[in-house]
């Protein structure tokens, strides 16, 4: 109990009356109800609502599917051979994404997939309006995940005391020393 509370009791005001006074004060104040269906809530950019997929960036590396704590990401891909562009060049292989699906009935919204994606193909969107009548509809395929991309907000600016991004701190470093003589490099490599 705080000093204020003790003080007012000493003044002889019964607790019930003080409680009613608090209620009366609140009654006089405006409500804080948010009128959800009519007024959409303003959500912070980091809010974890739904995962959006930018399929062009996905290389089907499977990192997200592997790191997911309940393994709710399904990826199918196949290899395609890209013929050489220059005469005498080598044919290249690249992965083509066939299927990318997230089961939102299983997803625990931890954000590990977004965090581990090395190619920035996954993003959080604050959208939350996707309740379904059938559980099978909660398995969102690639096109549905792609539609969420439009709702992805830009990331917030970071705190002024945050460390510089890696790109900036790399710029600030002194230029790399000129390459050491071949002999020294070889020794270093052995060590």
């Amino acid at each position: 109990m705080t000093e204020a509370a003790k003080g007012s009791r000493a003044a002889g005001i019964p607790g019930l009356v003080r409680g009613l006074a608090a209620t009366a004060r609140t009654l006089a104040r405006p409500t804080h109800t948010s009128e959800y269906p009519d007024a959409p809530p303003s959500l912070p950019p980091r809010s974890r609502g739904v995962i959006a997929l930018l399929a062009e960036n996905c290389t089907s590396c499977m990192l997200c599917a592997r790191e997911c704590p309940d393994w709710c990401i399904y990826i199918d891909s196949h290899k395609e051979t890209v013929p050489a562009t220059t005469p005498g060049g080598r044919d290249r292989q690249r992965n083509v994404l066939d299927r990318f699906a997230i089961d939102f009935s299983l997803c625990m919204y931890c954000g590990i997939c977004v965090e581990v994606c090395p190619f920035d193909a996954l993003f959080w969107s604050p959208e939350f309006e996707y309740a379904e009548l059938d559980i099978r509809e909660l398995l969102h395929e690639r096109d549905r995940l792609g539609q969420w991309m439009a709702t992805v907000p830009p990331p917030p600016a970071l705190d002024e005391r945050s460390a510089d991004p890696a790109e900036v701190s790399a710029l600030g470093k002194p230029a790399r020393a000129p390459r050491a003589p071949r002999q020294a490099a070889a020794e270093e490599g052995q060590a």
């Binding site: 109990m1 705080t2 204020a4 509370a5 007012s8 009791r9 019964p14 607790g15 019930l16 003080r18 409680g19 006074a21 608090a22 209620t23």
Partner: peptide
Amino acid sequence: EALISGNE
């Protein structure tokens, strides 16, 4: 607190 503490 007014509702909780000191409420008879």
